[in-house]
Design a protein around this nucleic acid. Sequence first.
DNA 1: TAATAATGAGTAATTAATCACTTATTAGTT
DNA 2: AACTAATAAGTGATTAATTACTCATTATTA
Lengths: 173, 173
Amino acid sequence: MTEKQEKILKAALNLFAQNGYASTSTSKVAKEAGVSEGLIFRHFENKEGLLKAIMNMAMESSKQLITEVMLAGEPKKVIRKMLELPYQVDRSHYDMWRLTYALKWQMNMYDSSANDALRLILKDAFQQLGYEDPEAEAELVFMFLDGASTAFLLHEPKNKADVLKCIKKKYNV
Amino acid sequence: MTEKQEKILKAALNLFAQNGYASTSTSKVAKEAGVSEGLIFRHFENKEGLLKAIMNMAMESSKQLITEVMLAGEPKKVIRKMLELPYQVDRSHYDMWRLTYALKWQMNMYDSSANDALRLILKDAFQQLGYEDPEAEAELVFMFLDGASTAFLLHEPKNKADVLKCIKKKYNV
DNA sequence: TAATAATGAGTAATTAATCACTTATTAGTT
DNA sequence: AACTAATAAGTGATTAATTACTCATTATTA
């Protein structure tokens, strides 16, 4: 990975997240990265290849967060770690998540199976705790995660911490 | 509103929602609508004017849903109506909501004040019911609404109804 | 007949991608 | 070390296609 290659990735992530993938031209990326436009195609073949390279980085960094939940063990700890997930995302990764969330709506880009492993663990946790409908409970938590992450990424509400306290109480975790 | 004008709006909504605003050209809209491209600019001035016309329709149709909650009165009913909101959206309006949700991520397009009226009503409802942190509770419900709507619009989970039952129980509504 | 609706050919600018070319870096042989 | 060949990194001009948009003209309606 050369220095200019990294500059391209950084510029592309920034522009894609801020202005959207479709409305960011490769010439804009090249200008922002301080690089000739041709270099983008030399390293990433085409515009989509550039996006894929970025999304692979995003997948890699999200794996770290997920494994932390996986290793929680006890059901209550699983649920707590899960609820805390949106709070664990580092500010430096916000652009990555903004892009990920934006791409969900760009057709064909949504992979619902990506969270299947977590969903199963969560369901088991609720089951062990004797919840009536563990599957629905798991789905509900996922909805919270999605809604909370969206809020944090878009308009950073001032009562972030209070919301966490609030939902933790509901699950006694 | 002429017949062709409506066809343009319908085609544009469909394409914008499916493939995104930026990656949908006016020529594609014209082709889909069975109309000359120039007509789009005669009626809507430019591409952004077309989008604005669509979003105005979306605003109008969302007002109906919101007023229903406004008129609920009793705090418990307010909360119940609120939780049911994502379930009240008609399938025929899904494209409109998909576009609305997708545009949130397209920078500058996010208007957090749009929900302020509802947020206030919801906060009051929680306050009247003696909840400890009504503001956080209101925010939490909004996160659920966002997450649930996203799930419904993107991958229509099979246990939609169970999730509603599940969350209603948590709020005793 | 006057206004509006609708067309379709045209335009300048931008797009993703290619290409011939130059510069730097590495590897192999003396 | 020093020379050389090969590979990779990087440039910038260029391309064909597409873009949003205009405008002169024709059809339709009031």
